[in-house]
């Protein structure tokens, strides 16, 4: 499986964010998108996830499931946690697991991020770090080949960062793809880097 971006152009609010962008991520590879604030890291991830339309260029996932679109094979982990405070931790995860496609949601996701003990509590009582962990549990609960992570380590303590790194390594080892936007290291040993410069 390969994610290919060729000559991508992104225009938001009338301003050209980037143009002529090429990248290539193979199975088991992680691409870290870096660049200063406003360089378009988040826009690129949102473009791959299908939330922002491309103003030019081509995005394709080769050898993926031919019946599914690119966004339908991707997990998007953004700045917002997409949690409902009045639902319990388990209900939140169950909903996303069912909605995003798993037939029978299990408790593995919660256990994997260390939230098994608070499964029955309303999500309103979680701290920012716990909310982030709960979002990450979604990636485990539903199998999708491409992970799009927008600054995944923000709000996470060291232990949680290591947990996430472990999950990412397992995902890559299983032939998955990761595209992450980050300012610093994300805890993976060898990654490709894509540096976004300001458009001329």
């Amino acid at each position: 499986m390969r994610l290919l971006g060729t000559q991508l152009v992104c225009v938001r609010g009338g301003r050209q964010v980037f143009a002529g962008l090429d990248f290539d991520v193979g199975a088991g590879e992680a691409l870290v998108v870096t660049g200063r604030n406003g360089a378009g890291k988040s826009s690129l991830l949102r473009m791959i996830a299908g939330f922002v339309r491309t103003a030019g260029g081509l995005l394709e996932l080769r050898h993926g499931d031919p019946e599914l679109t690119l966004p339908e094979q991707a997990h998007y982990l953004g700045h917002q946690d997409a949690l409902k405070p009045s639902l319990s931790v388990a209900e939140n995860l169950d909903f996303w697991a069912r909605y995003l496609g798993a037939e029978a949601p299990g408790r593995d996701g919660l256990e994997a991020v260390g939230l098994g003990a608070v499964a029955a509590l309303p999500a309103a009582y979680l701290s920012a770090g716990q909310r982030r962990r709960l979002s990450i549990a979604r990636l485990v609960a539903v199998q999708r080949p491409l992970w799009l992570l927008d600054e995944p380590t923000s709000a996470l303590d060291r232990a949680a960062q290591e947990t996430l790194a472990g999950l990412m390594r397992a995902h890559l080892a299983g032939g998955g793809l990761i595209v992450a936007a980050a300012h610093g290291p994300i805890g993976l040993a060898d990654t490709k880097e894509l540096r976004l410069e300001e458009a001329p």
Binding site: R46, A49, G50, F51, L68, P71, E72, A74, H75, Y76, G78, H79, Q80, D81, A82, L83, K84, W96, Y99, L100, G101
Partner: peptide, 14 residues
């Protein structure tokens, strides 16, 4: 939309 759920719904298969 405010909590990001709408984004994720777009990546759903329905």
């Amino acid at each position: 939309q405010e909590d990001g759920s709408l984004d994720l719904m777009l990546t759903g298969r329905s």
